[in-house]
Amino acid sequence: MSEHPINPNKWIELYSDYLFNYTITRVNDREIAKDLIQDTFFAGLKSMKNFKGEASERTWLISILKRKIIDYYRKINSTKGQAEVRMTYSNSEDHEGDWLEERVEDEGYLNAQETLENTELGDAIYDCMDKLTEKQARVFKMKTILNYETETICNELKITPSNLWVIIHRARTAMAECMEKNWL
């Protein structure tokens, strides 16, 4: 019997957010990220028989997703003219000096090292979120990552605000402990 059983009915609940965060940090486009995750799940269903259970289900899905992301970049790079960089600057004297401003580094720009660290940090946070109960993880994500209003979450999950804050408190305590062990 395999060490890690496979259960596609639980994929969305258990892995969709992790896979989405993994993808969005690499392709930077919400729609494309969703398409790639969907393709990953479909590919996973097709090759379920090949899953030996040596790695965890999540690791296996990530390996499929990585191939999908590589295929996506291959596809866009092979499209003629996509990689072409176009820069047009006005010759008008009215705009003199604007080009300098346009070449100033964007404040939100991250270098490769920072991007890598943030990606690793994101993975560590998701690993810790995996250890929360299903309800804690859901409330924590809605409140902390999606920034939903307390009232919206309460209506959606049919809980009272005091219930929500108790769940948030337990989730944050567990997350902080886990992050201290795994990251700091």
Partner: peptide
């Protein structure tokens, strides 16, 4: 510290 870490990581997840 936890809030800072989450902010720095720029986490994202699927909307409902």
């Amino acid at each position: 510290k936890l809030t800072e870490a989450i902010k720095t990581s720029r986490l994202d997840c699927l909307k409902e």
